[in-house]
Simulated scan of single mutants.
Amino acid sequence: MEDFLRKINLVQDISIQLPISKIDFIQKFRTNVDESDLSFVPFEVFESSKNEYKGNILNNSFEFKKRRKFFNNNYSFAKVTGTFKEDHNLLIVNAEINGFKKRMLLFLGIMILFYLISIFSSIFLPGENPPFIFFPFHFFPFLLFHMSLMIGIPYFVIRRSVKRMVYDVERDLHYWVTKN
């Protein structure tokens, strides 16, 4: 499953080298990321914080994601988890950006089941007025178009979110290191 998600760009790996010590990176991370366990907070948009991210950091690993903001259409679904290690004068950060959540499997399963039932009932039920049918056969092209939209739009939104998060993480980590 993980390989398939990487192939369709819903999970990406990045590696960044930063000219900073491990202790300084942890300190900068804590000043730029609000401490959170990344669970669902219903009124998160009303919290006031100048930090763009929320997450946590341990001795050699971290996880964070973008904070929800009021009237922000660019909310990222992606979550960043990573490890870091110090090698001579460089800090090597290996991170995974994951936009796919396991609870989406339920949504996809229900949608695929609905479309399979609709397709099979429109193809295999005989007669002019079958007793149980979702769509007549002449709506079959509409059904395929609808299915491509209902599965395709979330896919492209999540893929764009992962791609944007890769860019933001690289940019922000370098910015944290260079700013005083």
Rank of each mutant, 00 (worst) to 15 (best):
S39R: 13
L18G: 05
K66C: 02
E63L: 10
V41D: 12
Q17I: 01
E35T: 13
Y53S: 01
Q12V: 07
R68D: 14
F71C: 07
E52K: 15
F62Y: 14
F62S: 05
E47G: 02
F29I: 06
K54Q: 01
E44Y: 03
F29Q: 02
P19I: 12
K65D: 06
S21A: 11
Q27T: 11
E52F: 11
F62P: 10
N59M: 05
N51W: 03
F71V: 01
S39I: 00
F62L: 01
N32S: 13
T31D: 07
Q12M: 04
F70I: 15
K22I: 09
P19M: 04
Y53E: 05
I16W: 01
D34T: 11
N51F: 03
S39A: 06
S61P: 00
E44M: 03
V41H: 10
S21Q: 11
L18N: 05
S49R: 05
D13P: 08
D37N: 12
S36L: 07
R30Y: 04
D34V: 08
I57S: 02
S49Q: 02
R67K: 14
Q27D: 08
R67F: 13
N60P: 01
L58G: 13
N51K: 10
T31N: 10
D37G: 03
V33K: 02
E63R: 07
D34S: 12
N73W: 12
S39Q: 12
P42H: 15
S39K: 12
F62E: 00
I20F: 04
E52P: 00
E47H: 13
L38S: 11
Q17L: 13
N56M: 13
I20N: 09
V33H: 08
R67C: 09
Q27V: 09
V41T: 02
F64R: 00
F25A: 01
